[in-house]
Nucleic acid binder design. Sequence first.
RNA 1: CGGGGAGUAGCGCAGCCCGGUAGCGCACUUGACUGGGGGUCAAGUGGUCGCGGGUUCAAAUCCCGCCUCCCCGACCA
Length: 477
Amino acid sequence: MKEVTKMSVDFDRWYTDVVRKAELADWSGVRGMMVVRPYGWAMWEAIMRAFDDMIKDSGHENWAFPLLIPREFLMKEAEHIEGFAPEVAWVTRAGGAMEELEEPLAVRPTSETIIGPLIKRYIQSHRDLPKLTNQWNSVVRWEMRSRLFLRSREFWWQEGHTFHAYAQEAMEEADLILGYYRAIAEDWLAVPVLVGKKSPAETFPGAVYTLTVEGLMRDELALQMGTSHYFGQNFARAYDISFSNKENERELCHSTSWGISTRLVGALVMAHGDDSGLIVPPKVAPIQVVVVPIFRDDDGQAKVRRFIDGWSGELKRAGIRHRVDWRDERPGDKYAHWELKGVPLRLNVGARDADAGQVELVDRLTRQKAAVPVAGLADRLGKELEDFQRRLYERAQKFQRDRTYELGTLDEVVAHFREKGGFVWTQWCGDTEEEGRIKAEAGGVTIRTIDEESKASGRCLVCGRPAKFRVALAKAY
RNA sequence: CGGGGAGUAGCGCAGCCCGGUAGCGCACUUGACUGGGGGUCAAGUGGUCGCGGGUUCAAAUCCCGCCUCCCCGACCA
């Protein structure tokens, strides 16, 4: 049957099993390139819709920029290209005879270096600003080690790129988007996140600073779920993206970029799943309610069908995404199937229920069953779904709280991560070499985020000097 | 990209050492019985043995090259 490796036995195998058996995605035969199947893509579509609405409401516009980037464009911003060089794929030949191109073209790993030189045409005056662009596309990064959704050589995302007359406005933009990302993670995916700034070592190549949202997965590893970058005038300087201000002087733009990707589908799997499979948050669930009819013979089937037909239209009108599973399988198979796929609510409906005018409601989180009258079913299910979304978030929040610690010294941190995972808050002086020592000595532990809300108070965990930053440490994907 | 392992039906595997008719379980198809938590029986379908080359009368099996996947390390949305 469709056995899934137990999460407690081997989390990585569990993840791979679940992603494939729940029909989210597969490998394609070309190393690192994945096929996203309809059930997985539908979750990404829900995320896309939610985020697209948010940015449209705040004046952003979708564009389409080219897939291939001329080498000279890519090479302009020194720090940026240095950061991305190891993972850029190049087109060097084309045509029937596979002729060598005079100038190689980079397959975009991200589009700052092509949007910059193209967008400047459309920016002349301060009246053209801000220019708030976004594109939904896929990018290629030549990773050496891949995992479905979390690290594939091609992945799908949105990349926003904005250009502003004022530094303050660009920084506010980066903050605004970070807030959207937090909403996507917490309100839509039901994954609580730490929100803050990256250390210089973890900052996006070419950025002045990078803001991040970090979630905690059920194997107690952190996952970066979205980043928003403030570039200052770095990219504007490299590509001469400038405008005439009110005094008719030339000035360089201040720019930002920000992205969330199909990685978020992996995040939802790892943040909520259990030994039976996925648990999908109702707001992004392709199927929120599955109906399993139970019958013995044709008469029984007809009776159950009439009963279900009596209220399924009402569910549809109420906007509840549901499916009636009429496949010729046994009920037990169907239960296991839809649990693996993480459908939040299930209705078991047999002749006895039809007679009683009720359905059996089964909750994917608690597995509890309850008899529910069909009168007012759509309202009831709507409330149940909202409640499910809330309970799922609270469960993840408790999980995260129970695995968030406060430690003072590097020795304590090293000892902690020998035994446990989770987030460890500590104090840091800001020295990048000392940050490297944490990573080396604690076995891949990194600074996930710098707390921007509260001030550092104690001493640096490495050197003992007065700390400048309060930081969250974790092992991460 | 370094070390190790593996590619045979949709999935999981045996066969390879010692060359000679391509097999098993699950899934799938059909039928019957069944049906409120992963059923039973019967009869079937399905294969360029990862790709290319070599050795041989003959290659899934031996040799060479390549591709892909998995595990472990260094780099990463």
